[in-house]
């Protein structure tokens, strides 16, 4: 039992950075913008978050700073794509190259610096419930925030007028434009949100998951986040499912190795990727449902024709 709880706790920390980044990308994509620069925005959030906590000693300020850093990085993308009509796929990839380089420059003085990690917040009363207490009510603030953001995003997209408009822009920018909505402005904001979420996802890595700075520490998690949005077929709830599934299998295969199971470790390391494909295959069979949620103008440039 203890080992199970411990494993679940590890899974949560492994899934949280993916969850943040994927959630942000989902909102960006819902508005019709495909930003492949998640990795670049994440790593900028990671270094700025770490740098700030080192300077100010405040986890809260550091998290805010990481969100701003992610959003600023996303701004470069948004200006190029939305103002200068650059194509989205290569611009996102260029953003990743740029972000990894810039973060390494900024981080030169942070190598070898230690940080004890953001504190855990036990919710009084609830955290003492056996089993559940430890899993649900004794986490660091960012884990609570990630779950809050899942619910908030779900509510925003499905229950608010602004969310409806955002989805309309993503589905048919021409129609939304005709109705008088500013497609560019909405997409800009959605892209910034995606950047901020990627930034905080990166900060989770450098402030909580493994609180230190090393170059390239995101190690491809931005790509996994991108895949999770596809996996979720643009549904918020499924992003949560996907992040925990991916994190879960990653951790369980480590446990399986520690148990001494005689399967080559390379095959064990393949499992999260294979499982994600398998589950996607199972849940993708209903074409109409996927069409319902996927933004129809995703990745297409908007040229207002007045």
């Amino acid at each position: 039992m203890d080992i199970l709880i411990a494993a679940i706790l590890t899974i949560i920390t492994a899934a949280t950075p993916l969850l943040f980044a994927a959630l942000g990308e989902l909102v960006t994509e819902k508005s019709g913008v495909l930003n492949l620069g998640i990795e670049g925005m994440m790593i900028m959030g990671a270094i700025i978050g770490f740098f700030t906590v080192h300077q100010t000693d405040s986890a809260f300020i550091a998290i805010i700073a990481s969100m701003i850093a992610g959003a600023l990085t996303a701004t470069i993308f948004a200006i190029l794509v939305l103002k200068f009509h650059a194509s989205q796929v290569p611009t996102g990839l260029a953003l990743t190259i740029f972000g990894i380089g810039l973060s390494a420059l900024i981080g030169q003085s942070m190598i070898g610096v230690a940080y004890e990690g953001i504190p855990k917040i036990a919710i009084p009363g609830l955290s003492s419930i056996p089993v559940i207490g430890d899993i649900f009510f004794n986490q660091d603030g960012l884990v609570y925030f990630s779950i809050f953001m899942v619910v908030a995003t779900m509510w925003f997209l499905n229950k608010t007028r602004a969310g409806l408009i955002l989805r309309a822009v993503g589905d048919s920018h021409d129609a939304a434009h005709a109705m008088g909505y500013s497609v560019i402005k909405i997409r800009f904001l959605a892209t910034l949100f995606g950047g901020a979420m990627a930034g905080v996802g990166g900060a989770y890595l450098s402030l909580a998951y493994s609180p230190l700075w090393v170059e390239g520490m995101t190690a491809g998690r931005g790509w996994i986040a991108l895949a999770l949005v596809v996996f979720a077929s643009w549904r918020v709830g499924r992003v949560l499912l996907g992040a925990y599934l991916f994190g879960g299998i990653t951790i369980l295969q480590l446990h399986a190795q520690a148990l001494g199971i005689a399967v080559p470790s390379q095959i064990m390391s393949m499992l999260p990727y294979l499982a994600t494909i398998l589950v996607l295959v199972i849940i993708s069979r209903d074409k109409s449902k996927i069409k319902l949620n996927s933004p129809a103008s995703l990745g297409k440039a908007f040229h207002p024709s007045r």
């Binding site: 190029l80 650059a86 740029f98 990894i100 420059l105």
Partner: peptide
């Protein structure tokens, strides 16, 4: 440092695409 190459490549690509 190689990081500068990344920033430089990023800038070049941004301008090319824009």
């Amino acid at each position: 440092p190689i990081a500068v190459t990344g920033v430089f490549q990023g800038l070049l690509l941004f301008f090319l695409l824009a």
